[in-house]
């Protein structure tokens, strides 16, 4: 199960990078990043809010992780 997962994930990553690299989608110029620079377009949200929400879900559900590394565990799961 794990092995399949790892293999699948790696192939997806490679595929994704290949597509992105070949399609020439990296054509956005530095002065064209006004919209991308807006706070609503960042992947990192409010740190305290994300901390609470991830903590809640990891203590009430079987799955956790995925968006980063680090952070403390707790006796809640």
């Amino acid at each position: 199960m794990i092995k399949t997962g790892v293999r699948l994930a790696f192939s997806m990553l490679v595929c994704f990078m290949g597509i992105a690299g070949l399609s020439g989608c990296a054509s956005v110029q530095p002065w064209e990043k006004q919209n991308l620079a807006k706070p609503q377009m960042t992947f990192e949200g409010d740190k305290l809010e994300t901390g609470y929400i991830e903590h809640i879900y990891s203590s009430k559900e079987g799955a956790s992780g995925g968006s980063g590394v680090g952070g403390g565990g707790c006796g809640c799961n």
Partner: peptide, 8 residues
């Protein structure tokens, strides 16, 4: 990997 796909 993080990739800019377009201006938006």
């Amino acid at each position: 990997v993080t990739q800019v796909m377009s201006k938006n």
